[in-house]
């Protein structure tokens, strides 16, 4: 498929919720590694992150965001026909978190609800899935909840967030353009190797197996990330994919108001920006304050940096997500009069 167009789908609004607790990568770490942290922060560009308390799930943040968005849009709950959740941190392995949220949000039992297992790339995919259901008829209004609970105190990259996006049928809406791709040969680059059916959790996984350069011990049940492989993938695949999508949509770079990229780390994001020759002013970043919020990073950046600009006038955006899978996708959207509540903390 890769390139495609959706018609009659309107981007109605977006809300973003992050946990209240702020972690500083410079201060909230063991004293013996503080010296190295200044260099790390300078290079990855991430100084602060948000961390959920023990009890809080991704779905709790997404629920708050969805409630705020429904309120702002004045949508009646019985009018929501579809609820799609894109996450890799569900409440339970099964059943799907989307179905639990159908009930918690007080949506009708006639709502179609399911989860999509995508991470950092997931936002454009989610827009495409919900948008396709709307464009096909049947679904008039739908909610897309995207995000993860992926932060850990000792990992300086990841940060928690939950987001809600509203799409609705509108015969006069401008077309949405998509480019969605997958490369499963790179599945090991970012992986939680233990806990699925391929290798269930056993007692042998309950002891740490590897000590890193910061004297921190890791368990097999933690996310494993091959930094060089992810960097090479992102900086080699994303720029040509963005160029391809622009050409397909017949849109010049100058005619895009904002380019919103997944917030991976400063090295990756700056390399992509420079290779595409984009000015910093049109590439908003939330890396410093919110870190890498996985699939939520596009909504986090739109909400935290440009929500006021997006709420007024007509704006054309290019969205680009990339990461675990390996998976990468882009979308070109035109927004006008969409609802953008300010960033919520819960």
């Amino acid at each position: 498929m890769s390139l495609s167009t959706l018609s009659h789908v309107r981007f109605a609004g977006m809300a973003t919720c992050v946990p209240r607790r702020i972690i500083s990568n410079l201060e909230d770490c063991r004293p013996q590694i503080r010296g190295d942290r200044a260099r790390l922060v300078r290079n990855i560009g991430i100084e602060f992150r948000r961390l959920c308390p023990e009890w809080q799930c991704f779905s709790d943040l997404a629920l708050v965001a969805a409630e705020a968005l429904l309120e702002k849009l004045q949508w009646r709950r019985e009018d929501v026909d579809a609820l799609i959740v894109v996450t890799q941190s569900p409440d339970y392995l099964i059943p799907a978190t989307a179905i639990i949220l159908q009930d918690r949000l007080g949506l009708s039992q006639a709502t179609v609800a399911f989860d999509v297992n995508l991470g950092c790339s997931g936002y454009p995919f989610g827009i495409n899935i919900l948008g396709s259901m709307i464009a096909a008829g049947g679904v008039r209004k739908g909610l897309l909840l995207v995000g993860d609970r992926c932060a850990r105190l000792e990992d300086p990259i990841f940060s928690d967030a939950g987001t809600a996006t509203a799409l609705e049928f509108d015969a006069a809406a401008p077309p949405m353009y998509f480019d969605l791709n997958s490369d499963g040969s790179g599945y090991r680059a970012i992986i939680l190797p233990i806990g699925g059916h391929r290798e269930p959790v056993g007692v042998q996984h309950l002891l740490p197996w590897r000590e890193d350069e910061n004297d921190h011990w890791h368990y097999k049940t933690e996310l494993q990330l091959d930094g060089p492989a992810v960097l090479s993938f992102s900086t080699q695949r994303v720029p040509p994919a963005v160029e391809k999508l622009l050409a397909y949509a017949n849109v010049a770079k100058e005619d895009v108001d904002y380019f919103i990229f997944h917030q991976a780390n400063r090295m990756i994001n700056e390399t992509i920006r420079k290779k595409l020759g984009l000015p910093e002013a049109r590439v908003p970043s939330t890396l410093r304050d919110f870190g890498n919020t996985s699939g939520a990073s596009l909504p986090v950046t739109m909400t935290a940096r440009i929500h006021a600009e997006l709420a007024e006038g007509k704006k054309r955006l290019l969205l680009s997500g990339f990461g675990i899978g390996l998976s990468w996708g882009g979308a070109i959207l035109e927004l006008e009069g969409a609802a953008f509540p300010a960033l919520i903390e819960a």
């Binding site: 190295d36 260099r39 790390l40 290079n43 990855i44 350069e213 091959d226 930094g227 060089p228 492989a229 960097l231 090479s232 900086t235 080699q236 090295m267 390399t271 420079k274 290779k275």
Partner: peptide, 27 residues
């Protein structure tokens, strides 16, 4: 400090300064 951060930075240097894609395996 020939650590993971330095290795990532060198991969970026090759890409942006010299237009050459190298991998962690190359390093």
């Amino acid at each position: 400090q020939w650590d993971s951060l330095a290795k990532l930075a060198v991969i970026v240097l090759f890409d942006t300064e010299y237009g050459k894609a190298i991998t962690g395996e190359d390093l």
